[in-house]
Amino acid sequence: MITLNNYSKQYGSLKALSEINLNIPSGSLTFLVGPNASGKTTLIKSLLGLVKPTSGNIAVNGITLNGDYEYRKEIGYVSQIANFPDNLTVDEIFRMVKDLREKQKNYDEELVSGFQLEPAFNKRLKTLSGGTRQKVNVAVAFLFDPKIIILDEPTAGLDPVASSLLKDKILKENKKGKTIIFTSHILSEMEELAQNVVFLLEGKIFFNGTVKDLINSTNRQNLERAIASIMNGVQK
């Protein structure tokens, strides 16, 4: 379970997130939506301790984050942009993360074979395409069978085959009871995944509930149009 209490983050005079109260229950599948610069990435980075709060706090599985790092054992994270040291090989990246978490031995290598990464194992990272690099990034996040999986625009850069494979994987892991949080700009593509929607706008939570509630409350036929109608409403 992830809880945010009055969480605020300010960069200089820019309020990225203001007084967020949010509760993400264990085993839920949450779609974090919002226009550019609405605070999605800041929120995700806050959960990982990459961004330090201006005020308020976050608790992950009951532990309040306070510069601690052990709790990240339970988290798999896919960042927007993947980059690794240029001269390491794909194989070395996998060996490195396994080395770093040597106590965690139940590897989930389904995506490694699913993405057909084996032929690239001996290639250096700098020779790989952006898409392949993103595949490595995604496969590493799922490698340790984490209880919480956080994906920031995971399908950006992935081809349709890889992206649908990833979506299947997300649904499968969620059925096993994993907590999953993800963001994407392609609402129609992700609609099949979303159960809960958290809609962020200008650093505040504008809507938090199920997809059905959101669609019903706006009288639109799908998630994309429902979100668009809310955004139009706010702008007017």
């Binding site: 510069g67 052990e70 994270y77 993947a82 990034n137």
Partner: peptide, 17 residues
């Protein structure tokens, strides 16, 4: 500067800063 994304990746692992 070139390691920036790699630093983010490493910090999302259970590693002390």
């Amino acid at each position: 500067y070139n390691s920036k994304e790699y630093i983010v990746f490493m910090l999302s692992q259970p590693i002390k800063r």
